[in-house]
Amino acid sequence: MSSPLFRIIVILCSLGGAGYQFYLGSQSWMFYLAAATLLSYYHFRFGSVLIAYNAFRRQDFATMRKLIGATSKPQWLSPANRACYYFLKGILATIDENFQEAKQFYLQAVDGGLKADHMKCLTYCILADTSLRLAESQEAKKFLAKAKEFPEQDDIKPMIAELESQLAEDNASAKPGGTCPSTIKSAL
């Protein structure tokens, strides 16, 4: 995992080496060209999503925003990385309090191939919270029910419990719009 700029520099150096070796008449230009091809494939297929995810886990949102912004063609990413990309875009939209856009990104992440049950469960919990913020309690109930379908996750249990109490509160008081449970705030 390296920064996009570093990868591009290495690709250009490999192409330069291939050109130079070809100019010299050496057969090793093929190795340089093969290296440039593999590095280009890696650059476009995997992007900087894993580095951005590590920045998310460190709560370094400025770096995460920069790395996610550097991904110009998310449709070229592998399905798992594309799903993670949309999850991180949803986190950024949630931080910016653009909840409608965040909901769309989270839905793309869930539909796009998040692999780990833990990530799917967390995403459904965040979708339930986002739906509460958008005053869509029926949607929130639906997403919370989907989150409960996954195996028990100790770190997600408090989120589910707090979302259930928030839904009960919203139903009892009939007030629209939820607030972000503190357990989900800590996950973000």
Rank of each mutant, 00 (worst) to 15 (best):
H118T: 08
H118I: 09
M119E: 15
K120C: 11
C121W: 01
C121P: 00
C121F: 00
L122E: 10
L122A: 10
L122C: 08
T123R: 02
T123N: 02
Y124G: 01
I126S: 10
A128F: 06
S131R: 02
S131A: 08
R133T: 07
L134Y: 12
L134Q: 08
E136L: 12
S137T: 15
Q138D: 15
E139R: 06
A140S: 04
A140C: 02
A140G: 01
A140W: 03
K141P: 00
F143Y: 15
K146D: 11
K146F: 13
K146S: 13
A147N: 02
K148Q: 10
K148D: 08
E149P: 04
E149Q: 13
P151V: 09
E152N: 05
Q153E: 15
D154G: 13
I156F: 00
I156N: 06
I156R: 01
K157E: 07
M159T: 09
M159A: 10
I160S: 01
I160P: 00
I160G: 04
E162W: 03
E164C: 05
S165D: 15
S165R: 14
S165K: 14
S165T: 15
L167H: 02
E169I: 04
E169R: 10
D170P: 00
S173E: 11
S173W: 14
A174C: 06
A174S: 09
K175Y: 07
K175S: 12
G178K: 01
G178S: 06
T183Q: 13
I184S: 00
I184K: 00
